[in-house]
Computed example of a mutant assay.
Amino acid sequence: MVSRMSGSWRASAEPAAFPPRPKGGADGAGAADPVAGERSLTRGYAALDLGTARTRSLGAGGAAIAERPSSVPADARGASTDGAGSLRPLRHGVVVDQAACNRLVRLVLRDIGLSEAWPLERVLVGVPVAATSSNRQAVRTAVHAVAGCEVTLVEEPLAAAVGIGLDVTDSTPRLLLDVGAGIVEAVVINAGAITDARALQLSATTKEGVPSYAIDSVVTMTSMLLRDVPAHLRPAVRDTGLAVTGGGAAQPRLLRRLRTALRIPVHPAPEPAHATIRGLTRLCRRPSLADRLAGRGR
């Protein structure tokens, strides 16, 4: 399905309602390396990347990114959505089970050891560009119910761009592809905003990343986005190339197909699965920039 909203096309493997854009613009929890070269988070702040398959977080005073599957044990009635005795509260990056999401958020905040940071002042959370207003409110409700503080939403491709060191406020447009477990989003970032975007919803991913049947769709979606960049901006986009983030960013077949089809440099990010949580973490340290970018996530 291809849907058009506010001047941009978004491709979807499943029917989805995308909101109009504002004008202007395996199992077990684990820990990853801390954000290199960064100071501890401002006390009272936390960053949270709620993904379809895995959730990543970092809190005030934390030395490492905490990571766990995006699932919780089934309730007393034995309800389960994955056939393995657990509930998965997110699909395509958005909340589909509010109560289970609240439980997941509680587990995540426990993972990052925030006992010394309470009361929290603010939690920054990533959301897909394609999330509707009700999707966004569900995330805000889940986090606020547990944290009891201000919840700031930042669109995940913007956070990922910050996480890999791009200057998202620059007027030079940048092309970014964020390859998640349940949703793939291609965006153009210019002067602190996502100016065009497309999204492909995935029913499942493989250990390698995007399933074979969907690779062509991802490439076509990204090609369409590049094609629709205004002619006077296209040379700059071609010079800077495509940044690829998310858990599927290092998939060799996908990268080869992108390079062949787009004929521009394609740059998979280092530690691409952690780009979004790193970006949210850095935004915790730059409140003014977080507020500016959050205008797109509200």
Rank of each mutant, 00 (worst) to 15 (best):
L104M: 10
V184D: 10
R174V: 07
T141D: 06
E14V: 12
R88W: 09
A26W: 09
I65S: 04
L176S: 02
V184K: 13
T195D: 02
G44S: 10
G241E: 05
L90F: 12
G59D: 04
V2P: 03
S171W: 02
R4I: 11
S40E: 12
A32C: 11
L289P: 09
V125S: 02
L258P: 14
P265L: 06
P20I: 08
F18Y: 09
A100T: 09
V2R: 13
R298P: 01
P73E: 01
T206M: 00
T132K: 07
Q137R: 09
V244C: 12
G180D: 12
Q98H: 10
P119M: 07
V143D: 09
Q201L: 15
D216T: 10
G62S: 05
R292T: 11
T152Q: 12
S80K: 00
A243V: 06
L175D: 04
R56W: 03
V187G: 02
R296D: 14
T281Q: 04
R174N: 04
A74L: 04
D291K: 06
R21K: 13
S171R: 05
I189Q: 00
R296K: 09
A145C: 05
P211L: 10
G192D: 02
A46V: 04
A290I: 07
S70W: 00
E271N: 11
S133Y: 07
E38V: 09
N102A: 15
L50E: 00
T220M: 05
R103Y: 05
H274V: 02
R257W: 03
A147C: 10
G24P: 05
R91Q: 14
A145K: 10
M224L: 14
L166M: 12
D167L: 06
A60W: 08
A117P: 06
P268G: 06
F18H: 00
L175G: 00
G78N: 07
R54A: 08
H267K: 13
A231T: 05
A117T: 11
S217W: 03
A269K: 11
L293D: 05
S3Y: 05
R257I: 04
K207D: 14
A11K: 07
L225S: 08
G182N: 09
P211E: 12
R259F: 03
Q98P: 11
H267N: 13
L41H: 11
P173E: 03
H92K: 08
R282K: 10
P69F: 01
L124P: 04
I189N: 02
V218D: 00
L104K: 06
